[in-house]
Structure formats: structure tokens, C-alpha cells
């Protein structure tokens, strides 16, 4: 009898001790994983910033020239030129144009899913959008290369590789992003907004246009900005169809290049540590900074969310 009580007591004391040890250990590994995430983020920022600034600090490339000059000729023996403006321009152009195409379609589909056919529309479109997200970007690029480029070549003058091809490929790629977030935004609007508007005798379209879209506007803009962020950072699909030329495109049928496509194309062919290679890292830094800017815009928009 005596024996069992002590052992039970021992057992409890022992298990208690075990538990409190486990408690600490649990907290430690969980916190460690959080620290790893912080480290990764800080490391990416610090390393890419250091490397990206080398072209300016070590090689003496003028930052002003890099950002504004349109003359990109890094392999010229005597007088290499490092003007990355055409690529920055190309990146911004494809991003804005693809957002212009994808935003109305995506938001329209979102309104369709939440306002017109909430029951079956969602059931069909939800999996469709999930599958569109799932198609890898190289496959989009490859289809662009084999279908879109020849099509543009046959319909218009020129070689087919163009800003237009890049824009269309990117619009399709960012469409699911915009649709998903816009659907969430429209779906979380309170019911009484709709009912109030209908009770006043407004038609469905009037309700959508005058009540629901203005109420969801910050979230809808967030959807567009997230889509643009994705378009801005996309590399391979764009590189395959845009033509990768050095000049600023004068029309959407001209070939062009983006920051990502130039990095993709040249990173493997330039010597690590050379000036040209370092300017590619500077372009990477621009990508990093722009993705920061996109985050800030999204932050600003979500602080303005009214509902």
C-alpha cells in the first residue's frame, strides 16, 4: 500500500517535471522557427542590398545614369554604358497594361460570383481559378511562345515577340490573384448594405455600382496591387515572349525587355563579380525595393478599409 502511494507520487512529480521541461522546449523550438523567418528576411534584404549597391560603390557606375539613361551596352570595351531605364520602363509598362486587362475581368468575375450567381457561380469559378493558379509560369510562357507569338506575328507586322505578348501572358497569370482577393472583398461586405439598397428600390446594378463597389474599394485596389506585384516579379514567362531588346518600345507591338527578363537572360552568361554582373544585382535590388513599395501601398490601402 505504502509502496504504491509513493510511486504514484513519484510518478506525478516526475511527469510534472517532464511536462514543464517539455513546455520550455516547445516554446523554444517554436520561437526558434520564428527567429529563422526573421533571419531569412533580414538576410535577404541585407545581402541583396550590399550586393546590389556594389555596382555603384565599387565599380563606380553612376546611379543616376543607371536609373535614367536609355543606353545599355555593358560589353562595349572602351566605354561600357549601363542605362537600365528601358528595362525599368518595360517592367512598369507590362505591369500596368496587364493590370488594365486583368482588373476589369477579375473584379467582374468576383462580382458575378458574389452578387449574381452566388450559388452555382462560385461552385464553377472557384475550382477554375484554383486550377489557373496551379498552371506553372513556364507553361504560360511556353503557350505564349507557341500560340500567342505566332498569332501576333500573323495578325500584325513585326516578329510577334512583343510587349503585347508579354502583357497578355501576364494578364492571364494575375487574373486568379485579382479574382480571388476581389471575391473575398465582395463576399465579406455585410448583408444589410445590399438589403438597404434594395429596400430603397435600387436595381442590382445600381446596388453594385453605387453601394458595394465603393464600400469594397480599398480591398479591390489591394487585389489589383497584389496582381501587379506578381506581374512585376514574374520572370520566365515574360522573358520567353517579350523579345528582350534594349530599346524603349514605341508601340505595344515592339519588342521590349523587363528587369526580370534581363536578369534571367544574362545572369548565367556574365562573370560573377564583373561590372555587368553587378549591375544585374542592382536590378535585383530594384525588384526588392519595388516589392517593398507594393507592400507599403497595400498597408496604406488596408488602413483605409472602411468595413
Amino acid at each position: 500500500m505504502e509502496n504504491t502511494t509513493t510511486s504514484a507520487r513519484e510518478r506525478l512529480v516526475k511527469s510534472n517535471k517532464n511536462k514543464s521541461n517539455g513546455e520550455l522546449r516547445g516554446k523554444m523550438i517554436v520561437t526558434l522557427s520564428a527567429i529563422i523567418m526573421i533571419t531569412a528576411t533580414v538576410a535577404i534584404t541585407v545581402f541583396l542590398a550590399t550586393k546590389g549597391l556594389q555596382a555603384f560603390l565599387v565599380n563606380g557606375v553612376s546611379p543616376i545614369e543607371f536609373l535614367t539613361s536609355t543606353d545599355w551596352n555593358p560589353t562595349d570595351e572602351g566605354n561600357p554604358k549601363f542605362g537600365a531605364f528601358p528595362f525599368i520602363y518595360g517592367s512598369l509598362a507590362v505591369t500596368l497594361l496587364s493590370a488594365l486587362i486583368a482588373a476589369p475581368i477579375g473584379i467582374g468575375a468576383a462580382i458575378f460570383m458574389t452578387e449574381i450567381a452566388p450559388a452555382w457561380g462560385r461552385k464553377i469559378l472557384q475550382p477554375v481559378i484554383e486550377l489557373l493558379v496551379g498552371i506553372p509560369s513556364v507553361v504560360y510562357g511556353f503557350i505564349g511562345l507557341t500560340v500567342l507569338v505566332p498569332f501576333i506575328r500573323n495578325q500584325f507586322d513585326g516578329i510577334g515577340y512583343s510587349l503585347l505578348a508579354g502583357t497578355i501572358v501576364l494578364s492571364v497569370m494575375i487574373l486568379p490573384t485579382i479574382t480571388t482577393i476581389a471575391t473575398d472583398a465582395m463576399g465579406t461586405l455585410p448583408r444589410n448594405l445590399r438589403e438597404g439598397s434594395y429596400a430603397l428600390g435600387a436595381t442590382r446594378w445600381q446596388t453594385i455600382r453605387k453601394v458595394l463597389v465603393p464600400a469594397a474599394l480599398p480591398s479591390l485596389l489591394t487585389a489589383i496591387v497584389l496582381g501587379m506585384a506578381r506581374a512585376f516579379g514574374e520572370a520566365l514567362a515574360v522573358q520567353m515572349v517579350i523579345g528582350n531588346s534594349r530599346a524603349i518600345p514605341s508601340s505595344i507591338l515592339d519588342t521590349s525587355a523587363t528587369l526580370t527578363s534581363i536578369i534571367t537572360l544574362n545572369m548565367g552568361y556574365t562573370t560573377y563579380g564583373s561590372v555587368e554582373n553587378n549591375t544585374l544585382w542592382s536590378m535585383g535590388l530594384i525588384l526588392l525595393i519595388i516589392s517593398f513599395v507594393f507592400i507599403l501601398i497595400i498597408r496604406y490601402l488596408s488602413s483605409r478599409r472602411r468595413i
Binding site: 523567418m37 535577404i44 550586393k51 516579379g233 525588384l287 517593398f292
Partner: peptide
């Protein structure tokens, strides 16, 4: 913020970081 930033990094930038490190 860190997670948000990692999520919005272009994949090519992640690749460049991998190349560097």
C-alpha cells in the same frame, strides 16, 4: 511584416539570393 515580405518577394529575387548565398 517579415512573413508578408517573404510572401511578396519575386521568385527570381529568391533565386538570386540563393545564388549569392
Amino acid at each position: 511584416s517579415c512573413i508578408e515580405m517573404l510572401a511578396s518577394l519575386p521568385s527570381i529575387v529568391v533565386g538570386m539570393f540563393g545564388l549569392l548565398i
